[in-house]
Design a protein around this nucleic acid. Structure first.
Length: 497
RNA sequence: GGCCCUAUCGUCUAGCGGUUAGGACGCUGGCCUCUCACGCUGGAAACAUGGGUUCGAUUCCCAUUAGGGUCACCA
């Protein structure tokens, strides 16, 4: 129940015409968050009345990505309905029913029934104008510099049901419509500026405008969260509710999520679907957290940004949604992901990072990974960075950035001397733990009159090949004496050559 | 073009008539330090413009400007 005592039921109603980016996912997040916050239900509905634009796999993609984020629906199409639709979720999606069908093309008779009701009450009428007639009309209007639109030719013609026809809404001349949107406040239209829109196609399939009203009513939806592109047609929807004598849900029109360039999100922006983010090593909890924050803030002077799932649910409100468009900032997404990575337990990090490590293209020794993982955990912003950071532990042959050894008191002869000494020191060391190594190398640096940085740097390049690595002694300790000494000797050979 | 939405640092935002306009990311100085990262501590950085209303406007109202959406037998 929400503050008005109304049972909260929200829905996510995608049309399976493509793969949703994070902006579309955010709509689902908000619907889910709001339902959870008020102890209500959130359900999934498939708006597939446009059969021509249907994309195979789009629905499955959506369900699976949302599941990855931890968003499960209380109601939605059953596995049987999904199968009929042509999509099967491995293991089953397991959504409950109760207000189905949840796939619009499986509910066509109901829309026809409502359309007939609208015709009977005089709010709608049949129209048998052909596409050619409409096109001609449009052309003439444009020639006269009039705004194009249906003139209502069939309004009073009583086109018989037996003729091939569409159903249009008879839009009243002056019909004031008031929308109370929790995000935008009160929005008023002096009239519905639409020209008798079609709600039922000549093939008998409902258009969005009818289906959405019928479904939200039938499914007892209390709050609709949808993209702001729907605000312009909200008057039509509100009018339809009125004609039908139904109570309209609360409509919250969400602003747009833009790419870093300020343009609408698209493929050009790179990783903008959750699937891509997942492949780049972003954690679902971080993605849920950050994406929710694009366009929403707790307000009330609360500056919190990192939220657990439960904290998000607790803090969420429609009023906290910003009315202006927002930019998805990949940099901040990365920062937040790093925060989440560091908050993981050692074991959890090692476990989640392993699949990414295995993609590195080299054999992975699990025990070495587990030893070095905690040091990697402090240094990566996403899991995909892992292989490049520790590959030197697993590869038999490494590339070295030799130039990086020089500078700050170290030239080539000095580097050679350091490495000769390092090889001896390591060979003679009784134990190979961090403390022993550090003490030995610290003494060595002093021997050469060098600061730790430059001296260790030479060894770092020799054993790892890179200038940026996990801490040196941990790295050496994990790779073991044999490998470390061999790599130092190999480097001496390279310098001599 | 008609109708509608929007406007605080580069970005995400706090603010709901009186504040040195706060926080976060990013950028940057310093500290810590074996590299990197973390962490700590400083800094630069914003109320689109013009009118009102008011003792007083970032805040309320109206214009202007600039973005965006929508005007299909698509959603």
């Amino acid at each position: 129940m929400n503050e008005t005592g109304m049972k909260v039921r929200t829905r996510f109603a995608p049309s399976p015409t493509g793969f949703q980016h994070v902006g579309g996912m955010r709509t689902a997040m908000y619907a889910w968050l709001f339902a959870r916050k008020h102890g209500g239900q959130v359900l999934l509905r498939v708006e597939d009345t446009d059969q021509e634009r249907k994309v195979p796999g789009a629905l499955r993609f959506l369900i699976e990505e949302l599941a990855w984020l931890g968003i499960k629906f209380d109601e939605g199409p059953s596995d049987a309905e999904l199968k009929e639709f042509g999509e099967e979720i491995p293991g089953g999606a397991g959504m409950k029913g109760g207000h189905g069908p949840y796939i619009q093309t499986q509910k066509l008779p109901r829309y026809r029934e409502v359309a007939e009701k609208l015709i009977a009450s005089g709010h709608a009428y049949r129209c048998d104008c052909t596409q050619e007639m409409l096109e001609k009309e449009r052309l003439e209007q444009m020639a006269r510099k009039e705004p194009p639109g249906y003139t209502g030719y069939c309004r009073h013609r009583n086109v018989p049901a037996t003729a091939k026809h569409v159903v249009r809404v008879k839009i009243p001349e002056r019909q004031k419509i008031v929308l109370n949107d929790p995000i935008h406040g009160t929005v008023t239209w002096e009239d519905i500026s639409l020209r008798d829109p079609v709600i039922m196609k000549s093939d008998g399939i409902s258009l969005y405008h009818l289906a959405v009203v019928v479904d939200d009513h039938d499914m007892e939806i209390s709050h609709v969260m949808r993209g702001i592109e729907w605000m312009a047609t909200a008057p039509l929807h509100l009018y339809l509710y009125d004609c039908l004598g139904w109570k309209a849900p609360v409509f919250a029109h969400l602003p747009v999520v833009l790419g870093p360039d300020g343009k609408k999100l698209s493929k050009r922006h790179g990783a903008m679907t959750t699937k891509e983010l997942r492949e780049q090593g972003f954690l679902p909890e971080a993605v849920l957290n950050y994406v929710t924050l694009v366009g929403w803030a707790p307000g009330q002077g609360n500056n919190q940004e990192i939220f657990t799932r439960d904290e998000l649910i607790k803090a969420f409100s429609l009023e906290g949604i910003n009315s202006a468009n927002g930019v998805f900032d990949p940099k901040k997404m990365e920062w937040m992901n790093g925060m989440y990575i560091r908050a993981l337990s050692k074991e959890e990090f090692a476990k989640r990072g392993l699949p990414f490590l295995e993609r590195g293209g080299f054999p992975v020794d699990l025990s070495l990974w587990e030893k070095i993982a905690p040091h990697v955990q402090e240094r990566v912003k996403n899991l995909a960075e892992i292989p490049a950071m520790v590959d030197f532990l697993f590869k038999s042959k490494i590339e070295r950035d030799l130039e990086a050894m020089y500078g700050k008191g170290v030239d080539k002869p000095m580097a050679q001397r350091i490495l000769e000494r390092a090889a001896v020191i390591m060979s003679e060391l009784p134990s190979f733990d961090h403390a022993t190594l550090e003490a030995a190398f610290k003494a060595m640096a002093e021997e050469f009159g060098l600061k730790a940085g430059p001296a260790y740097g030479v060894v770092r390049i020799a054993v790892t090949g890179k200038r940026v690595t996990p801490p040196l002694f941990e790295s050496i300790s994990v790779m073991g004496k044999d490998v470390a000494v061999a790599r130092v000797k190999e480097t001496i050979g390279l310098l001599a050559a």
